[in-house]
Design a protein around this nucleic acid. Structure first.
Lengths: 118, 118
DNA sequence: CTTTCATCTCAACCTATCTTGAGACATTAA
DNA sequence: TTAATGTCTCAAGATAGGTTGAGATGAAAG
């Protein structure tokens, strides 16, 4: 992820409705959710929801596919991990005090420890 | 870091000049840099720079202290690692495919491996 | 005390973002 | 085909964000 992509992603996530949509879609898993279901969960009108979903998709954080009458949106995991990696990479240079606590906080969650890449 | 703080931090970082300021200050270390030096590095007028530094300080990402005639700004490492941890925590729930690659990418940088907290 | 230097503050302007409501488009069912 | 459903598009208006330039403030030097 380069600086421009990171700026787009950060801008997309810096809005309450959009941040919540992403969180919802991450927990929804790869199947994602229909736009209508997302709108219901957010309490947003179809127009407003569409605006934010389009924004998120343009930033590469979510993707969509038609499913009958509905359009299903799902999180793009690569983009999210890419953003986190960008922040770590940028902030970490010579300053482990930034990312080490973040990684430590991670051990409190359900993720497995990172395995050294082959 | 709660949702409101995360939104503030994301909003602050979603602007090119501000993202670059933070990167600069992280590499500058705890001593930070005088506003004038930052402005010179950014190619920004004093007014514009002050606007962005104020924004970053309000978001808790940088802090300032007077040093003679200058005002020195430095990165707040806790806020940066807190934001990264927030994104991981939120995105990771049951979906290690988000944060595991990010942590793996970290091993490519100069940071030590995370040590299990005592 | 006056001058100089570093930075901040303010008002004005322009642009971007967000919300709303009406209507269009695509898909499915009758 | 017609009707119903789900979602998108568009235009309008409100709000927030970014830049500029002029001037104010605060600290140090002469």
């Amino acid at each position: 992820m380069n600086e421009t992509q990171a700026l787009d992603a950060l801008g997309a996530l810096s809005q309450e409705t959009r941040l919540r949509i992403v969180r919802l879609l991450v927990t929804a898993g790869p199947e994602g959710m229909a736009a209508g279901a997302i709108g219901e969960a957010m309490g947003a009108t179809s127009s407003r929801l569409s605006f934010h979903l389009t924004h998120l998709e343009a930033a590469g954080l979510v993707q969509s596919r038609r499913d009958g009458r509905s359009i299903r949106y799902s999180a793009v995991y690569d983009a999210l991990s890419g953003l986190i990696a960008f922040l770590m990479r940028d902030c970490c240079q010579g300053h482990p005090e930034v990312c080490t606590p973040a990684v430590a906080a991670l051990s409190a969650c359900a993720c497995p420890s990172p395995e050294p890449a082959a």
